[in-house]
C-alpha cells in the first residue's frame, strides 16, 4: 500500500472525508477527499478478521443450519459492526493514537482524514450493520451485535480505557460477542441458561484470553502507553505485577479452553487440540510471568506469547468447527 499524503493546506472541518482547503480568497475553497484506503484502515481490518472468524465458527457449530446467503449476510453485518467499532474507536482516540508510535500513522492522527468523516462513517456503518443483521436473520442476533458495539465504544473506549488498568479485563467482553452473534444468527436464540451453552463457553474463552494477550503486547509497547497516558497495567502497576497477572489470568483461560470438551459440547478432536495448545500457552505464559526484563531487552518471550496467542485462538475455533463437522 502506497503512503498517502496528509491533507495539506489550511485544513478546516469538512464532512464526508473532505478537508476544506481554504485559499487566499475566503469565498474560494476546495475540498480534498480522504482516500478510500484510509476509510478501510479506519475499520482495523486485522482486528476485524478475528471477529469474522469467531462469528463464523459460532454460526457453523450451531445446531441449526443457516441459509448460505443469510449466513454470508450475517458475517458481513458482523464485519461491518466490527469495522464501525474500529472507526469510532479511532475517532475517540485521535489524540492517544497520535501520541503512540504504533498508531501515529493511522488516518486521523496522520491528518489524512477529517474527524467528522470518521464519526459519520463509524455511526453509519454501525447502524447499518445492526439493521442488516436484523432484517437478514433475526433481531436477537442484531440486538447482541448492537450491545457489543455499544459495549466496545461506551464501556471500553470511553469509560474504562482511560480510567483503569482493568480496562481490557472488562472491555474484553466486547471482542468476545461474535461467536454468540453467529450462533444467534443461525438459531434465533442467545442460548442463555444452564448448563452453559457452547457459544457462551466460546465467549468465556475469548474474554479470558484477552488479558494475557493484551498484557503481553503492553509489556513491549509500554513506553507508548505511558506517553499516551493510558493506564495499562505495566504503566500503573509495573512490569512484575503485569507478568504475574498474565500468568494468573492464563489459568482460568486454560480451564475455559477445555470447558467445551468437559461440558460435552465437543469431542476428542477439540479436546486434544485444546489441551496441547493450552499447555504450550501455559508454558509461554509461565516463561513471561516469572522473568524480569533487563536493560535493552528485546522482549522475545513476550512477543512470542503475543504472536502465539493469536494463532492459539484461531486454531482452537477452527478445531471446534472441525470437531462438530468432521467427527459428529
Amino acid at each position: 500500500m502506497t503512503e498517502r499524503p496528509p491533507l495539506t493546506g489550511d485544513a478546516a472541518a469538512g464532512s464526508d472525508g473532505y478537508a476544506t482547503m481554504t485559499t487566499a480568497s475566503p469565498s474560494a475553497s476546495l475540498a480534498m477527499p480522504a482516500d478510500w484506503r484510509d476509510f478501510l484502515a479506519l475499520t482495523k481490518p486485522r482486528v476485524m478478521s478475528l471477529a469474522i472468524f469467531t462469528a463464523l465458527c459460532g454460526m457453523l457449530v450451531a445446531p441449526v443450519a443457516i441459509h448460505p446467503v443469510l449466513g454470508f449476510t450475517a458475517i458481513l453485518a458482523i464485519a461491518l459492526g466490527a469495522g464501525a467499532c474500529g472507526a469510532l474507536n479511532q475517532w475517540l482516540e485521535v489524540d492517544v493514537d497520535g501520541a503512540m508510535r504504533r498508531t501515529a500513522s493511522r488516518p486521523l492522527p496522520a491528518g489524512r482524514m477529517e474527524p467528522q468523516a470518521a464519526l459519520h462513517f463509524g455511526v453509519g456503518l454501525g447502524v447499518f450493520s445492526v439493521i442488516l443483521l436484523g432484517m437478514a436473520t433475526n433481531w436477537v442476533a442484531a440486538g447482541v451485535l448492537a450491545v457489543s458495539i455499544l459495549f466496545y465504544i461506551v464501556v471500553y473506549t470511553i469509560w474504562l480505557k482511560p480510567r483503569t488498568p482493568q480496562n481490557i479485563v472488562i472491555g474484553g467482553a466486547a471482542g468476545a460477542f461474535p461467536p454468540v452473534i453467529g450462533w444467534a444468527a443461525a438459531t434465533g436464540e442467545a442460548a442463555l441458561g444452564w448448563p452453559v451453552s457452547l457459544p457462551w463457553l466460546l465467549f468465556a474463552l475469548i474474554f479470558l484470553w484477552t488479558p494475557p494477550h493484551f498484557w503481553a503486547l503492553s509489556l513491549f509497547v509500554r513506553t507508548d502507553y505511558q506517553r499516551a497516558g493510558i493506564p495499562m497495567l505495566p504503566v500503573v502497576a509495573g512490569e512484575t505485577a503485569t507478568r504475574r497477572q498474565i500468568f494468573l489470568y492464563t489459568i482460568p483461560m486454560a480451564l475455559s479452553a477445555v470447558a467445551p470438551w468437559a461440558f460435552g459440547h465437543t469431542g476428542a478432536l477439540y479436546g486434544v487440540t485444546a489441551s496441547v495448545l493450552t499447555a504450550i500457552f501455559l508454558l509461554l505464559a509461565t516463561q513471561v510471568g516469572f522473568r524480569r526484563s533487563v536493560e535493552g531487552d528485546a522482549m522475545k518471550p513476550e512477543k512470542r506469547l503475543f504472536a502465539f496467542s493469536i494463532l492459539y485462538l484461531f486454531i482452537l475455533f477452527a478445531a471446534v468447527v472441525a470437531d462438530a463437522w468432521i467427527l459428529t
Partner: peptide, 8 residues
C-alpha cells in the same frame, strides 16, 4: 488560480 500552491 484560487488554489493554494501545495494543492495536488
Amino acid at each position: 488560480d484560487d488554489l493554494p500552491p501545495d494543492f495536488d
